[in-house]
């Protein structure tokens, strides 16, 4: 049986610089998978490869068994894979509401998410809906970025470092939305540097180091030692 999404020996490079060396990963419908790893481990590169920002060989990435590695980003979204990119990347020329609308402009999908539902999830956004997206605080911007991705009602949501640079209370608010998101049946991949949080929210974790997966395990029975070794290398 094929997975919702799987990668097979996925490689990626920037010019001459190799960033991924044969990554194997999979996720099934409704699952939540966390990817942890130090800075520069290749987590964002993996996200960019999956979402088509970086091109791969077709068979390196399968979606329900179909090769999608060579598809451009816009076609990946249309297949139901949406990303919350690292650094949020809201459109400065668009208001909060327009940032949300553009997320669902091409693919509306069939699911619960609509503008009203996003506003119900993050009420503060409704108040600020006419402000330029980039005028908001970091946490609010992150909410917009998540809402924008949800607007396409994805089957798989990829979140790259949604807690980066935010205060703990704000992080808590954002993560509070995760159960609601998962309740729609969507699978979620989160990239997270905060290992403890990753272990709480995810069903399984992958740990990456220097472009390779060094550990994969169910979140509930992975040992600190194993993570430590996978995170910093066996020698540590």
């Amino acid at each position: 049986m094929s997975h919702l999404l799987s990668t097979h020996g996925l490689t990626a490079q920037y010019g001459q610089f190799k960033a991924l060396f044969g990554v194997d990963l999979h996720i099934d419908p409704g699952e939540c998978v966390a990817i942890i790893g130090a800075n520069g481990a290749g987590k964002s590169t993996l996200m960019r490869s999956i979402t088509g920002v970086l091109k791969s060989a077709p068979e390196m990435i399968l979606h329900n068994g179909t090769p999608i590695g060579a598809l451009p980003a816009d076609q990946i979204l249309q297949r139901g894979l949406a990303m919350v990119p690292e650094g949020r990347r809201l459109f400065p020329s668009l208001s909060v509401e327009e940032n949300l609308l553009i997320g669902g402009q091409i693919r509306k999908g069939s699911g619960r998410w609509s503008l009203d539902e996003i506003y119900a999830l993050f009420p503060i956004l409704k108040e600020r809906r006419h402000s330029p997206g980039t005028a908001l605080s970091g946490g609010q911007q992150q909410m917009v970025a998540i809402g924008r991705a949800l607007m396409s009602n994805p089957e798989l949501l990829l979140c790259d470092e949604i807690s980066l640079g935010l205060a703990p209370v704000v992080i808590r608010d954002i993560y509070a939305a995760l159960p609601t998101i998962r309740a729609t049946g969507a699978a979620v991949i989160i990239v997270e540097q905060d290992i403890a949080r990753a272990l709480i929210v995810a069903d399984r974790i992958y740990c990456m180091m220097e472009g390779r997966v060094t550990l994969t395990a169910p979140a509930k029975d992975v040992s600190r030692e194993a993570i430590h070794a996978a995170y910093f290398g066996a020698a540590a």
Partner: peptide, 23 residues
Amino acid sequence: TALGRAFRAVSDDPTTASLMGIN
């Protein structure tokens, strides 16, 4: 309009616009 929104988004950041399904 939606088209104008796409115009502005692509002008701001074509890569992120493509993540929204816009070519």
